[in-house]
Amino acid sequence: MSVLLIAEVLEGQLNKDSTAKALTAAVQLGDVDVLCASSGCGDAASELAALQGVAKVLCANDASYEYAIAEPMAALIVSLADKYEHIVFPATTSGKNIAPRVAALLDVMVISEVMEIKGADEFVRPIYAGNAIQTVTTADAKKVMTIRTASFDNAADGGSAAIEEIAAVACDTPVAWVSNEVQKSDRPELTSSSVIVSGGRGVGSEEDFKLIEALADKLGAAVGASRAAVDAGFAPNDQQVGQTGKIVAPQLYIAVGISGAIQHLAGMKDSKVIVAINKDEDAPIFQVADYGLVADLFDAVPEMTAALE
């Protein structure tokens, strides 16, 4: 039996990074068909067909899938489920919104945030904010799961899968999209960037958060934030790193004015190299940092930025 991977396609745009990482996990389970459901998603389907490891792209081009509302998406996926043993999503907010719904409709459990595949029915996943790693086996005939993208590499380009148009499934949904509030940025995407500079409550204000952004720009880095910094309005919610924000694993993570709460560490402690800048030498962030600098961030950060000139 084969695998159905649900590509993340929102408003016709493919989230290639998270989908290609989930694909790397999915190919370990069998032949992978990819579902590309959105509106105006012809280009997304072509991009998917060009990924190595894709057997076939199923393209459902319909207005009801444009914003990946859970009800119509789940109805479509369930209608395809007969042919597949595994139904796999990237663990994005959209994937995590839809996967449990599909699982419940199929009367199976969902397996969230899979970080390693041990076999067709054996999976590894983090629990307790990553403070414990659980291996589970499932007795369900169909396995519905989300893949922690930070744990897998990108699948390469170079494929040439066939694209098959499929019809939409009628679904009378009580939920309707109204608008997005998204801050456009030229910086790299948080979850795919190889360098991240994150600021915490210690940064002090939205104005001073520009120090973090200036350093990030010199490094070609994405900007992250702790929950405290987001709650205080220094940074938008989509920059939150942690148990309830984004999970990242860049080559270099620079934590500035962040204390290192369990919930923040959950989102970044698999980074290759961690740098912490904090004026409190006892801050828990230093326990995970490869390089710790005990300093006032208002001195150290501009100095780093200047050194990169």
Binding site: T93, V175, A176, W177, V178, N180, E181, P236, D238
Partner: peptide, 14 residues
């Protein structure tokens, strides 16, 4: 208003 990966999303629901 929902918190999503890209920022915020506004929806209506019955």
């Amino acid at each position: 208003t929902r918190e999503v990966d890209a920022g915020l999303q506004n929806i209506t629901a019955k």
